[in-house]
């Protein structure tokens, strides 16, 4: 028991890079034009933003979690504490990247800490994604696009349909299967 508690205690403040982060970073690096202006929403450890920056993009990272903002800044990525895209100007980004909290809520495992905020997207797993899709078009440049990581646990078709209702068409750029889920990076264009 104490082992588990200890392990949990290792990182309860900021979601650390995992397969999903790498998948999003790889897709972004392949997709982005050199010197693109990019926003990464929900940057967490900042590792995706850092890779995108190293590939030549002009990147800004945002997160609701102050510890995440600090980690991103320590990587040399400009960080803004924000609720999704709320404090960003209209039409300024060539691309917005987001690896959202996407797990459906499990009341039995509720934790009430920053890791919970990083992982769970409400009852359906889609609440944060949907709030993001409601506003993200506003901050995109005319040819701007979104790279969004989704999981079969969240419901890829449901996310694509919701994005469609907000004027986006979706292309799957790459996916990767794991024992309990398949992860897909969607490119959303208008």
């Amino acid at each position: 028991m104490s082992d588990l508690a200890d392990r949990r205690g290792v990182e309860t403040e900021v979601y650390q890079p995992a397969e999903d982060s790498m998948l999003l970073a790889d897709a972004a690096v392949a997709e982005l034009a050199a010197d693109a202006r990019v926003l990464e929403v929900g940057t967490g450890s900042g590792v995706v933003a850092e890779r995108v920056r190293d590939a030549g993009a002009n990147v800004v990272a945002s997160d609701v979690n102050p510890h995440a903002c600090r980690q991103a800044r320590e990587r040399g990525v400009p960080a803004v504490r924000a609720d999704l895209v709320a404090p960003f100007r209209d039409g300024v980004f060539d691309a917005v990247l987001f690896n959202p909290p996407y797990l459906p809520e499990d009341p039995a495992a509720e934790r009430d800490d920053w890791m919970e905020v990083a992982l769970t997207g409400g009852e359906t797993g889609r609440e944060v994604v949907e709030a993001f899709l409601d506003d993200v078009a506003r901050v995109l440049a005319p040819d701007g696009y979104v790279l969004l990581l989704v999981s079969t646990l969240t419901g890829v078709e449901e996310v694509v349909a919701y994005a469609g209702d907000r004027g986006f068409s979706a292309v799957a750029l790459r996916d990767e299967s794991f024992p309990f889920e398949t992860l897909t990076v969607l490119k959303l264009v208008r």
Binding site: V64, R73, A79, V80, R81, A82, D83, A86
Partner: peptide, 16 residues
């Protein structure tokens, strides 16, 4: 603060 602007809307700033 510490080089990071906190642009959360005021109602979220306190809770978090």
């Amino acid at each position: 603060e510490d080089g990071i602007p906190n642009l959360l809307p005021p109602d979220m700033r306190e809770a978090a």
